[in-house]
Write a protein that binds this DNA or RNA. Structure first.
Lengths: 205, 205
DNA sequence: AATAAAAACTAATAATCGTTAGTTTTGTGC
DNA sequence: GCACAAAACTAACGATTATTAGTTTTTATT
C-alpha cells in the first residue's frame, strides 16, 4: 500500500538505512527488529528485502562507511606539515564535526559494531586498532617535540576519543548549547590538558 | 547435574549476576539469552529461576547498585569543605576507581540501562540527570571562584564523564599501562584542561 | 494501452526467545 | 535413614525473530 518516498539524491535503500540508524541508536541493534524498521519506513517487513540484503548488512554499511571516513581523515592529517598540536586539534575538530553532522551513524559505529558478523567484525576491530595506533603515534611525536606533556600516549588517545564520543549525551539532552560553543569548549578542555603550559616550559628551560 | 558453587561471601544469585554481567558487557543485554547465562553458570536455563526473578531483574539490580554508589559519593563530596578543584579531582578519581574495581557492572550501568523496563527506566534516567546536574553545579561554582576556566559546565561534565568511561577500551586491550599511571595521566589531562593556568591568572589580575 | 520491471503484499518457515509447570535429584537437620 | 526444602532437571508454552516463497499491485517504458 504505502510506498517508500525517496528524498532527493537518495535511493530507497538510503531511506531504510536512515530509519534503521535511528532505531539502532535508540534501542540497540539486537533489540531492533526488522518489523520495527519496516514500521518506521511505512511498509511491511518482507518488503525491506527488495532493497537490502539482510539486517546485518545495514549495520555493516553504516560501520564501515564511518570507519573509512575517519581513516581517510587521519591519513590526510598525517601527510600535512602542521605541528603536532595542530594535527591533534584537526582530529579533535573532525570528530566533533562528524558527531554533529552524522550523529546517529557515528554513535552506531562506536557502540554497535560488536554485533557485526565475521569476517566484518575482525576487519572492523583491526581498522579501529590501527586508527588508535596512528593517533597514539602523533601524540607520541608531539611529546618528543616537547609540544605535549609526557603522559602515556595510549591513555591520551582513549581519553580523547571517549571524551568526544560523549557529545552523544549533549546531543540528546541539551539543545541550548550551540555547536560552536561546544566545539570550542571541548577543544580547550582537551587540548589544554595535553599541551605543556607556558609555566612548565619555563621550568624546563 | 552440575551445581552452582557459591564463592565465599556470595549467594548463588551473586554468581549468576556476575556471569550475566560479563555476558551483558560482551554481547549486550538484548543479545544475551537466558540460555547463554545458564551455560556460563553451568546449569540449565529454567534452573536460573530458582535464584532470580527475571532477566530484567538482573539488569535492574546491576544498574541501581552502581548508580547508588555514585550518588552516595557525590553527596559526600558536596558536604566536604574542599576547594572545587579538589572536589572534581575526588570525583574523577572515584570514577576511575569504580571503573577499575567493578568494570563490568559500571560498563553495563553506562551502556545497557536503556533496556530497563518502566518504571525503572524513568527512575534511572532521573538519577542520572540529577547526578550530572550536581556535577555541573560543582564545576559552575569552581568557575565563579576563578578556579576553573569559564567554559560551559554541562559540556565539561559530559566530556569528563565520557572520558572516564573510555577506560573500558584500555581495560580490554592494553594491560601494559598500570592502574596508577592511568589514573595520574587521566587526572592530569582532564583537570589541567579545566583549571586556569598560572599564566592566565596573571593576565586576569 | 500493453508490457516489463520494481516494489509492495500475504502466508509461512524454522529458530530462538523468556518463562512456566511439573518432576526428580541433591543437600540438610533431626 | 527419614523428612523436608532447595535446586536441579525435562518438556513445553506462546511470542517473536529474520527471512523465504509466491502473489499482487504499482510504476515506468514503449
Amino acid at each position: 500500500m504505502a510506498k517508500i518516498i525517496p528524498v532527493k539524491n537518495g535511493t530507497k535503500k538510503d531511506v531504510i538505512s536512515k530509519k534503521a540508524s535511528r532505531l539502532f541508536r535508540e534501542k540497540g541493534f539486537a533489540a531492533t527488529s526488522m518489523r520495527d524498521i519496516a514500521e518506521a519506513v511505512g511498509i511491511e517487513a518482507p518488503s525491506l528485502y527488495n532493497h537490502i540484503g539482510s539486517k546485518k548488512e545495514i549495520l555493516q554499511e553504516i560501520c564501515f562507511r564511518i570507519a573509512n571516513l575517519f581513516t581517510s581523515h587521519i591519513t590526510s592529517v598525517e601527510q600535512s606539515t602542521d605541528r603536532y598540536a595542530v594535527k591533534i586539534e584537526l582530529i579533535i575538530r573532525f570528530h566533533i564535526f562528524m558527531m554533529l553532522t552524522d550523529f546517529e551513524n557515528v554513535y552506531i559505529s562506536d557502540h554497535e559494531w560488536k554485533h557485526l558478523a565475521e569476517p566484518y567484525l575482525s576487519n572492523f576491530k583491526n581498522q579501529r586498532r590501527s586508527y588508535r595506533s596512528r593517533l597514539s603515534e602523533i601524540i607520541r611525536q608531539g611529546m618528543i617535540s616537547k609540544e605535549f606533556k609526557k603522559i602515556d600516549p595510549y591513555v591520551t588517545v582513549l581519553t580523547l576519543l571517549s571524551a568526544i564520543g560523549g557529545i552523544e549525551g549533549w546531543h540528546r539532552s541539551n539543545k541550548t548549547v550551540d555547536a560552536r560553543v561546544l566545539e570550542e569548549n571541548m577543544v580547550t578542555l582537551l587540548l589544554e590538558g595535553l599541551k605543556i603550559s607556558l609555566t612548565e616550559k619555563k621550568q624546563k628551560n
